[in-house]
């Protein structure tokens, strides 16, 4: 079996996480923000898998399973909110959704 440095996997995970963060910060469309949150959750899961692979324990994969179920619940509620927002406001721009402001 060949070997991979543990640093490399964590660096890949952090690059993916930062890309998701840039997506959340720069996009204005709600759908793109949800996509970027998925990317960030996936990067966190990759870090867990890397930690589990380093110590050859199943706990990393168990944590990935929990992240997976959390992402599924989050995305279903988030997409229901997106549908309702589009139905009521006819836009997906997060800067126009400011009814909670006052």
């Amino acid at each position: 079996m060949s070997s991979i440095h543990a640093h490399t996997v964590l660096i890949v995970a952090s690059i993916l996480f930062v890309l998701g963060l840039v997506g959340v910060l720069t996009r204005k469309n709600v759908i793109f923000i949800l996509l970027s949150i998925e990317i960030m959750l996936n990067a966190a899961g990759l870090a867990f898998i890397a930690a589990g692979a380093k110590w050859q324990q199943p706990d990393g994969q168990v944590m990935f399973l929990f992240i997976l179920s959390m992402a599924a619940a989050e995305v279903s509620v988030g997409l229901a909110l997106v549908l309702q927002i589009h139905h009521q406001h006819k836009t997906l721009d997060v800067e126009q959704l400011k009814e909670l402001k006052d």
Partner: peptide, 26 residues
Amino acid sequence: ILLLLEPPSEKMLVTVVTPRQVALSL
């Protein structure tokens, strides 16, 4: 990345963690 590169590099031995182990732990 600088923080991750700080400690000395060590290779990790890739061994397969089977679904059976995951299920028993889960």
